[in-house]
């Protein structure tokens, strides 16, 4: 690893306390372009809290988040997205009453330059933008084989496809770093294998960095290049998948001593 490159994501001594409870402390991570890093830990270890700090949902009480060398502390969620962080959620959060296509189109909103007058008078600029975005959205959906379901209401999709749609929506924000919060939760082995293909396809096509929270160890061990383990908000191990699998601290955290 060449540490001269600027990492896509870097956190320095990131920590948060809720009242007196230290949820996460001294969390340091560096992710470079094109890397896929896994974040694992037992239930309640603080993984999702880390995600929430990386997307501006929670304000960290100490430390800082840097994206491409730019400090993002104190910014709002949509500003994090504008800077290039996109995420999916542990419990799927789609726009349930909107169509599959609209779900993706929503994520383009921040890059749409037509204004109020363009939409009121339906100027050529409006039509052109909308047409381009539709093509772009269908293109994105085709990666996940959802293009023929573009007109479906999102809530009517089967579970596995809802997960995929959520990833497609995250990709539409044109990000540098993708945070996946338990993408394989509730999926059967076939669906998980499909998801694995998708994740690899995304990486090859977009060359982005991915940070992944997952409980499915086979998935984590298969795709992640590096793994970081946290327990009770404290990093207990970092390293290659093989090292992590043998690490006695990790085994103790998962199985008890």
């Amino acid at each position: 690893m060449s540490d001269e490159r600027t990492p896509i994501l870097e956190t320095r001594k990131l920590g948060i306390t809720f009242g007196g409870l230290v949820a996460v402390s001294d969390f340091n991570i560096k992710i470079f372009k094109g890397e896929l890093v896994g974040l694992i830990g037992p239930n309640g270890a603080g993984k999702t809290t880390v995600f929430n700090m990386l997307t501006g949902v929670y304000k960290p009480t100490e430390g800082s988040v840097l994206l491409d060398g730019q400090v993002l502390n104190g910014k709002k969620t949509h500003q994090f997205v504008a800077a290039g962080v996109a995420r999916t959620f542990q419990n799927i959060r789609l726009f349930k009453q909107m169509t599959v296509l609209e779900n993706v189109l929503v994520a383009f909103t921040k890059d749409i330059h037509y204004g109020m007058l363009d939409s009121l008078f339906r100027t050529p600029r409006y039509w052109k933008t909308e047409k381009e975005l539709k093509t772009k959205a269908l293109d994105l959906l085709s990666i996940f084989h959802l293009e023929d379901k573009a007109d479906y209401i999102a809530a009517n999709l089967p579970y596995g496809q809802q997960r995929k749609l959520e990833i497609a929506r995250a990709l539409a924000t044109d990000m540098k770093l993708l945070l996946l919060d338990e993408p394989a939760a509730g999926m059967n082995p076939t669906e998980t294998a499909e998801l694995l293909d998708c994740i690899n396809a995304i990486r090859n096509r977009f060359g982005i960095a991915i940070l992944l929270i997952e409980h499915d160890m086979s998935l984590v061990m298969n795709v992640c290049e590096r793994i970081q383990v946290i327990d009770y908000g404290v990093t207990i191990a970092k390293g290659l998948p093989e090292e992590i699998a043998k690490n006695p601290k990790v085994i103790a955290a998962y199985l008890g001593q």
Binding site: T55, H78, V81, F89, Q97, A170
Partner: peptide, 21 residues
């Protein structure tokens, strides 16, 4: 885009802001 954004907020505000709105 305005209508899409506000319907997204109606359906899920957290997801809407995580989509850059």
């Amino acid at each position: 885009k305005y209508g899409r954004a506000i319907r997204a907020i109606r359906d899920d505000e957290i997801a809407a802001s995580a989509s850059g709105i």
